[in-house]
């Protein structure tokens, strides 16, 4: 196994992006419904909840759940 320049780049970038305070998946989940509702209402959730936005940028599992949630909410909203 070899540390290629590509992997090294990825590693350095991810270290570089590390903030002193980052939330985990649990804290993200705890506020995800509010974040989603703000987004659907066009209310810039990334400004109101920057830590959630930061986590969604960095965590693919939470991002996947968030995108699926938006899709679900848009569907039921369009029914009304």
């Amino acid at each position: 196994m070899e540390l290629t320049p590509d992997i090294l780049k990825k590693l350095i970038k991810s270290a570089q992006m590390a903030a002193d305070h980052e939330i985990g998946c649990n804290e993200c989940f705890d506020e995800l419904h509010e974040f989603a509702e703000m987004e659907l209402a066009g209310k810039s959730p990334e400004e109101a909840k920057p830590l959630i936005k930061d986590h969604l940028d960095k965590c693919s599992s939470c991002r996947e759940e968030y995108q699926a949630l938006l899709e679900a909410l848009r569907t039921i909203e369009s029914d009304n």
Partner: peptide, 29 residues
């Protein structure tokens, strides 16, 4: 959640150590 926190802590350690040694990650990249 625990895995995310473990890796976050590791990323932060690498970042701080680079800083401490006066290495600019951008230059490195």
């Amino acid at each position: 959640n625990a895995l995310y926190k473990l890796v976050h802590d590791a990323r932060l350690k690498i970042k701080n150590k680079l800083e401490l040694e006066g290495i600019d990650p951008d230059e490195m990249l």
